[in-house]
């Protein structure tokens, strides 16, 4: 169970979103929509704990979120298996076999990451999520540079994850082919500009 109440978040010193409200139950996914720059990444980073919310609460147990950002955190001079094994050790989940199988990376396991195509790299990045064994996935544009087949593969992975009681929060523009997910449009939570008082300004310098 994962709940967000009256959340406000800012990028730099600029308030982007306020009053963000949603909840996520086991086995469900939520897709975040909204125009570029509306604060999708900021919201996800706030939920992942990389920055503090300006206001509101994120009601979630400790240590159950796995975050994946724009960049995959792949080391080009390590092999695919070494890259995954590192995260398995960090998250204390020992085995990487099922992740390699699920993302169809078995044949590439001993290849240096620098020799992977963009789509293969992205798959490796998503395999990292499986390795973390965390129930809540917070994903920022996970399907960028994936081809149609890989998107379908990714959708399958999400479906498996949800099927085993996991949750996912995904910011994306693309149709994932997952009919059962809910969609949340963030433009509804766009922060209202504070109205300047009688020619004065407050601590926000507005």
């Amino acid at each position: 169970m994962f709940q967000v109440r009256a959340l406000a978040c800012a990028r730099g010193s600029l308030l982007l979103l306020e009053g963000v409200q949603f909840s996520l139950r086991r086995g469900h996914a939520l897709v975040l929509r909204g125009p570029n720059g509306c604060g999708k990444t900021t919201l996800l980073r706030t939920i992942a704990g990389l920055q503090r919310p300006i206001a509101g609460e994120i009601d979630v147990e400790a240590d159950i979120i796995a975050y994946a950002g724009h960049a995959d955190g792949i080391k080009s001079t390590l092999t695919v298996a070494e890259n995954l094994q590192f995260w398995a050790d960090i998250y204390g989940t020992k085995t990487i076999d099922s992740a390699l199988d699920q993302m169809n990376l078995r044949g590439l396991a001993q290849r240096m990451a620098q020799n992977l195509s963009a789509g293969q790299k992205r798959r490796l990045g998503l395999a990292r999520l499986i390795v973390t064994a965390r129930p809540i996935w917070v994903l920022d544009e996970p399907t960028v540079s994936l081809d149609t087949a890989s998107v379908a593969l990714f959708a399958n992975v999400i479906r498996d994850h949800l099927g085993s009681g996991g949750m996912a929060l995904i910011a994306t523009h693309i149709e994932l082919g997952l009919p059962e997910v809910e969609v949340l449009d963030l433009s509804a939570f766009k922060a209202r500009l504070p109205t300047p008082g009688d020619g004065g300004f407050d601590e926000a310098f507005l």
Partner: peptide
């Protein structure tokens, strides 16, 4: 290098 390739974000959200 860890900052550029995103590892640092992932490490900061990892259980360490």
């Amino acid at each position: 290098l860890d900052f550029e390739d995103g590892s640092l974000d992932l490490l900061a959200t990892a259980p360490v």
